[in-house]
Each structure stands twice: as structure tokens, then as C-alpha cells.
């Protein structure tokens, strides 16, 4: 077989494989959208669910998902940034550092149901947090953290060594160089990764079943005092997220329109994650331009 023919065959195979993947994704997305979009309405997005009757919405679940995401990120971002900066700039290369890196890798490949059970035993029971948003956020932190550490580390490693040296040679301290030279360059990468991680949090169900719980109290959207038990902002209340709701409605929903609700909620979930991804790209580019003054 001559080289030209081999090249053509390889190209054809690669094009076919990627075409197949694109088709598969488009089909999946199309199916979810077509089934779900018909159910969209302002009412569906804002009203609480119904147990027996038709016409329930996903309002509290949507709010829970977003709130849980914010809580998780509030915990994950500072920890992840700190550990990532340490791993990239301060840790001396050696067996110990490699060991930490291995642990981080292992942590990131934990099955989420295991993280959920860990959350139930440690957070919900031993720490007595109960089924709560806080327990959910901490459980999600467990498997979001490795991602965040890796993203930060990669972001900092992607900064050209020359620029780091330029900062140091100008008399900047190590921390100042990291903070004002390296982090701005790394931020687009870190930000994009963070938003993608956020998308994962948004779609997570298994780790939340036993931590954030499968029910939501009747929320009073006029009460914004985080200490009051019916306030949407109370981090100690149980909270069913959108992904958990989809699972629950499909598994044990009694409402006559359970299938439609699940389809609608799935579409909302997918759309939100899609928005996250688009926002990640846009924001990453925007920040890069802003920090580097490029057009």
C-alpha cells in the first residue's frame, strides 16, 4: 500500500469516527430538547412540584441547584487555588509531591456514589449536619477539589518561564510574581476549568442523594434570612437539586405528567450546562483580553 492511499484511508476513518460522535451528540441533545422544550413555561420553571396532581414545576429544585453550586464553589475555589498554587510553585519536586499528586488523582476518580455514602456517614451523621445544603456542598467539594487543584496547577504551568523570570528579575517577591504576573496569565485557563467543574456539580445526583437529601421544605421566597428554617438561603435545610429531582420523578414519581416533568427538567439541566460552557469560553477570552490588553 502506498503512502498516499494510507493517508486517505486514515483521513476517511478519522472523519467517519468524529462524524459519528457529532451525530451521536446532536441526536442525544436533539432528543432531550424535543421532548423537554414542549414542557417549558414560566410556570414550570418557577412553581413548586406536585406529588399527585399534574402541573407541578421545578422552581425550588432549580434554585437549590444554583444555590448549592454557589456554596460548593465558595468552598472549592479558595481551597483549590491554594493547593494548586502550592503544588505548582512551592512544592519541591520529589516523592512526597508525587504522592500528593497521586492522592489528588485518586480522589478525582472516586465514584460519586461512594462520595455520597462517605458524606452520609461523616458529614450527615458524625458531624451531625443532617441532610443539608452544607453537607451536599462539602460532599461535592470532595470530588470537585482535585479538578480545581489540577486546573490551577496546569494554568500556572502554562505561564511561560520567561515571564516568571522577568517578574523575579525585576525584584518582585515570589508571591508577588505569582499573584500579579502569573495568575493573570493563568486566569483564563483557571476560569474556564472552574466553570466546567461547576457544570459537573450542576449535573451531579448520586453524591447528593444521601447528603443534600431528596426533599425540599416549602420554601418561602420572601424570607431571605439565612437562619430561618424556610428561607431559601438557609444552608442547613435539606435541598433536592434538579438532577436528584429528575432521578426521583423517574423512579417514583406519582404525578400523571411525571415523564413530561422529567423530560422538561432534563432539558433545563442540559441547557444550563451548555450555558455554563459557553459562558466559560466567552469569559475566558474576555479575561485574557482584559489582562493582556490584546485586541
Amino acid at each position: 500500500m502506498n503512502a498516499k492511499l494510507a493517508d486517505r484511508i486514515a483521513t476517511a476513518i478519522i472523519v467517519a469516527v468524529s462524524g459519528f460522535i457529532v451525530l451521536l451528540l446532536a441526536g442525544l441533545l436533539g432528543y432531550i430538547m424535543v421532548r423537554g422544550l414542549g414542557h417549558f413555561s414560566y410556570d414550570f420553571l418557577t412553581s413548586p412540584p406536585e406529588t399527585i396532581r399534574a402541573g407541578g414545576g421545578i422552581g425550588p429544585q432549580l434554585f437549590n441547584s444554583i444555590f448549592l453550586l454557589v456554596l460548593t464553589m465558595l468552598i472549592t475555589i479558595p481551597l483549590g487555588l491554594g493547593a494548586g498554587i502550592y503544588m505548582s510553585e512551592y512544592a519541591r519536586p520529589g516523592k512526597f509531591t508525587d504522592f500528593i499528586r497521586l492522592l489528588v488523582e485518586v480522589l478525582s476518580s472516586f465514584p460519586s456514589i461512594v462520595v455520597g455514602l462517605f458524606g452520609l456517614l461523616v458529614l450527615v451523621n458524625a458531624f451531625d449536619l443532617g441532610f443539608s445544603l452544607l453537607a451536599g456542598a462539602l460532599a461535592l467539594t470532595v470530588f470537585n477539589l482535585p479538578l480545581m487543584v489540577r486546573i490551577t496547577e496546569q494554568g500556572l504551568k502554562s505561564v511561560p518561564r520567561e515571564q516568571k523570570e522577568a517578574g523575579l528579575a525585576l525584584g518582585l517577591s515570589k508571591w508577588k510574581t505569582i499573584r500579579s504576573i502569573m495568575l493573570p496569565v493563568a486566569i483564563p485557563v483557571i476560569l474556564t476549568g472552574t466553570i466546567l467543574a461547576a457544570g459537573r456539580v450542576f449535573g451531579e445526583a448520586a453524591a447528593l442523594l444521601f447528603t443534600a437529601g431528596m426533599s425540599s421544605p416549602r420554601l418561602d421566597f420572601t424570607d431571605w434570612n439565612p437562619l430561618s428554617p424556610f428561607s431559601p438561603l438557609n444552608p442547613m435545610r435539606p435541598a433536592e437539586t434538579l438532577a436528584v429531582h429528575i432521578w426521583k420523578v423517574n423512579a417514583e414519581g406519582l404525578a400523571p405528567d411525571a415523564a413530561e416533568i422529567a423530560a422538561g427538567a432534563s432539558a433545563v439541566l442540559v441547557l444550563t450546562v451548555l450555558l455554563f460552557n459557553l459562558a466559560a469560553r466567552w469569559l475566558g477570552r474576555f479575561m485574557y483580553r482584559k489582562f493582556t490588553a490584546t485586541k
Partner: peptide
Amino acid sequence: VEHLRKRVGMVFQQPNPFPKSIYE
């Protein structure tokens, strides 16, 4: 060392401006 590097400036092999404006 930081003070030393202020007194002893350095220009490298590869141009390494910060990714900021010329002024900055």
C-alpha cells in the same frame, strides 16, 4: 534578594514582556 534585583536589572535571551500594555 529583591532589593538586589532592583539594583541589578536583567534582559533575557527571549524578549519576555508581561502580557500587559506597553505602558504597564
